[in-house]
């Protein structure tokens, strides 16, 4: 089962192996090949290597698609993405991601976590700048002309279906029918509607629950989640003062 090892019998020191002639023949053949057609090295500043579409250079953004859900900021291993308020012509003051490329290790996790494919992976890697500040790309500077190959989509199967056997369906990344859902613990909720205000996609709306607040005689409202719009960014979970919300994973 083992490779019969080619025993190198160390014969006398000076043997008629051509001493070094065989190697010279091989190197000469290589030299002829290199002069006949171009050597395999490229002259970098003038000629550039052709990179596939999915080459992971610096992350880029498509501002129209971004909804400011900050999932990329949460997912980044080096914490180099920050949410920064910028003035958009149509949407006014909104929070958009700003990437500090000095710390970024170009792993592409942010583009993978982005539910609306706003964060994309661009093939741009020549990022030298004169100051460290120059490497902090604000959302406008982060933009990059969009091409289909830059988006990072993946399809996954569900654990429960895998274990159940039978036909296994695969779901796309931002398939709304299959993703974690937010669960409300009614007792703790003080219906301050802070979660409804912070939700970037407007998936939460306060709904009367029938009871009436004895002191103020007004109906008590509690958040209801619209799963088709929710992108599980967990901003509501973080902002809830009484931590009444929690994530129920779909498995």
């Amino acid at each position: 089962m083992r490779i019969e090892e080619r025993r190198y019998t160390k014969a006398d020191h000076f043997r008629a192996t051509g001493y070094v002639l065989k190697t010279m023949k091989v190197t000469f053949k290589g030299a002829i090949r290199a002069t006949k057609n171009r050597p395999c090295t490229i002259l970098y500043p003038w000629e550039k290597l052709l990179y596939p579409d999915n080459f992971r250079g610096r992350p880029g953004i498509v501002l129209e698609r971004c909804i400011g859900c900050a999932r990329c900021a949460k997912e980044c291993p080096n914490q180099c993405i920050e949410m920064v308020t910028i003035e958009l012509p149509d949407k006014g003051k909104v929070k958009r991601p700003q990437v500090n490329l000095g710390r970024c290790m170009m792993c592409g996790n942010c583009a993978e976590a982005c539910p609306t494919n706003a964060m994309i992976v661009t093939p741009e890697f020549e990022l030298c700048s004169y100051s460290r500040g120059g490497l902090i790309f604000d959302p406008v500077k982060l933009q990059h002309p969009h091409k289909a190959g830059y988006e990072v989509n993946y399809s996954f199967a569900l654990l429960s279906e895998m274990n159940a056997g039978g036909e296994i369906k695969t779901y796309a990344k931002n398939d709304n029918s299959v993703h974690d859902t937010i669960v409300l613990d009614g007792a703790k909720c003080i219906s301050c509607s802070r979660c409804a205000k912070t939700c970037p996609t407007g998936a939460i709306e306060m709904v009367e629950t029938g009871e009436v607040n004895p002191k103020t005689k007004k109906p008590i409202k509690q958040p209801k989640f619209d799963n088709t719009k929710c992108v599980v960014c967990e901003q509501c979970v973080d902002v809830c003062p009484k931590s009444a919300l929690s994530v129920k994973e779909v498995l």
Partner: peptide
């Protein structure tokens, strides 16, 4: 490997529960 995963040395290709993307 660059065609497969998009990077030349640090591929970040495996994920917990599978791989990042299928073969091109």
């Amino acid at each position: 490997l660059c065609k497969l995963s998009g990077a030349r040395m640090t591929y970040n290709y495996c994920r917990i529960g599978g791989v990042r993307n299928d073969f091109p």
